[in-house]
Design a protein around this nucleic acid. Structure first.
Length: 422
RNA sequence: GGAGGUGUGGCAGAGUGGUCGAAUGCACUGGUCUUGAAAACCAGCGUACCGCAAGGUACCGGGGGUUCGAAUCCCUCCGCCUCCGCCA
């Protein structure tokens, strides 16, 4: 969530920034600013009224102590008007606050300077690429065929037991999942990230804290009976650890990681591009998260990007990195790098990781601050990235490393699997 | 799930409905003393909002209520603890 101070002090530049996303926020922002002005006026009035009635109440207390009942009663009469007034003012003020909050919580984050304006993925900037596209020759099966032949993944069984998008992994397919998770977690551990195993359901406060609510309400599975949400990403529980906290500047950055299944409703997506592992309702992911000092978050984002590069290179998968244009970025991000792996058999790029700096956008919702050198509380910057999401990695591994009689496992992964071919 | 208890500042821990934003101790910060340190002593030490400032307002788990006035009374939700039940 954008901070009110920011809107007040930098109205024009916020509007310019949001315009890069293709959003004309002038009207919303001016509405917020005018409501906020009203609010401040009313708060002044309310504070004065309360101050007045506090004085009278104290006076009543003194009279009561001295046994002057009549004088006390007389003062009581005076307070009744103040009381009704303050109730009215309180109502008015909370209405104004609520309206400001509602508009504010629907405004997305302002993109960084580096982020270009643009509407869709076509405007994303290619910033890096690695590896050659393999020439598969006649061995160019898509992963769903390989998975079926080698009995690695059973989509039909998942559809029967749960529904489409909830596959079963079997045998070497299951071991591949487990091995990849261990591999990713070990790499994160080596890079200094502390491993967590978080809850897979979160409450509404947490959903709001990282920005899934209210923006992505329909994307999450919701347990109505207990008002809990299945996590769409480990980001939600891992970042909400820091909700309502004040960190010590010395402890920054805080680095953590965790493996979790992720649950997404993905309503309305069907067809060829979501076939096989390309889009699932439940999938596995290792997430890395950092809580960082505002001055250092830009370089931290680069560190995280480098970490993900290392993973993909170890898996010998050709990839490219895109800096998303403003319009293609998520609601909460100030800057995002997407990693895409080339799928040789499908002849398309598959998004396998998204690494973002949210700057103070989440921190403002989370109320996550640190004490700066002046002893003042300041919002931290939050960052996170997938390192990595499994399904499309599995797809790319199966497709890119296939040969005449199976699939060759990249060397780095073999110790985690106990076999070198499928 | 049932019964009882409990929730106060970074921690510990007081708090008769009326100068309680809250005693006290510890921790922390600055100072005095000291060659230096420790000890001792002195002072400071929550957050948010409004205000140029002086200052004001709100906050004692969350929400609501009673009252001129609530940390203190009532209702409700949440967390924690103890006992019982159930259970991987």
């Amino acid at each position: 969530m954008l901070t009110l101070t920011n809107l007040r002090e930098r109205r024009d530049s916020v509007i310019t920034c949001l315009a890069k996303r293709g959003i004309d926020a002038a009207e919303s922002i001016d509405r917020i600013l005018s409501l906020d002005l009203d609010r401040r006026g009313i708060q002044k009035e309310l504070d004065d009224t309360l101050a007045q009635s506090n004085i009278l109440s104290r006076k009543i207390g003194e009279f009561m102590k001295e046994g002057k009942r009549e004088e006390a009663e007389a003062v009581k009469q005076e307070t009744s008007g103040l009381k009704t007034l303050s109730v009215e003012l309180k109502e008015k003020m909370s209405e104004l606050e609520k309206e400001v909050h509602d508009i504010l919580s629907h405004l997305p984050n302002t993109p960084c300077d580096l982020v270009v304006a643009g509407k869709s993925e076509e405007d994303n900037e290619l910033v890096y690429s690695w590896g050659d596209h393999p020439d598969l020759g006649e061995h160019n099966k898509p992963h769903w065929d390989i998975a079926k032949e080698k009995d690695l993944i059973d989509f039909d069984l998942g559809a029967k037991v749960t529904g489409a998008g909830f596959p079963f992994y079997k045998g070497k397919g299951a071991k591949l999942q487990r091995g990849l998770i261990s591999f990713f977690l070990d790499k994160a551990d080596e890079a200094g990230y502390t491993e967590y195993i978080p809850p897979l359901m979160v409450n509404a406060e947490s959903g709001f804290g990282t920005g899934q609510l209210p923006d992505k309400e329909g994307q999450m599975y919701h347990m109505a009976e207990d008002d809990l949400y299945m996590i769409p990403t480990g980001e939600v529980p891992l970042t909400n650890i820091f909700r309502d906290t004040v960190q010590n500047a010395m402890d920054l950055p805080i680095k953590l990681c965790g493996y979790t299944p992720c649950f997404r409703r993905e309503a309305g997506s069907y067809g060829k591009h979501v076939r096989g592992l390309n889009r699932l309702h439940q999938f596995d992911k290792v997430e890395i998260v950092q809580i960082q000092h505002p001055d250092k978050s830009a370089e931290t984002l680069d560190d995280m990007v480098n970490h993900v590069k290392g993973l993909l290179e170890a898996l010998e998968l050709p990839y490219r990195i895109l800096r998303l244009c403003a319009g293609d970025m998520g609601f909460t991000a100030a800057m995002t790098y997407d990693f895409e792996v080339w799928s040789a058999a499908q002849e398309r790029w598959l998004e396998v990781s998204s690494v973002s700096n949210f700057e103070t956008f989440q921190a403002n919702r989370l109320k996550c601050r640190f004490k700066d050198s002046d002893g003042k509380n300041q919002l931290v910057h939050t960052l996170n990235g997938s390192a990595l999401a499994l399904p499309r990695i599995v797809a790319a591994l199966l497709e890119n490393h296939q040969d005449a009689d199976g699939v060759k496992i990249p060397k780095a992964l073999v110790p985690f699997l106990g076999f070198d071919r499928i």
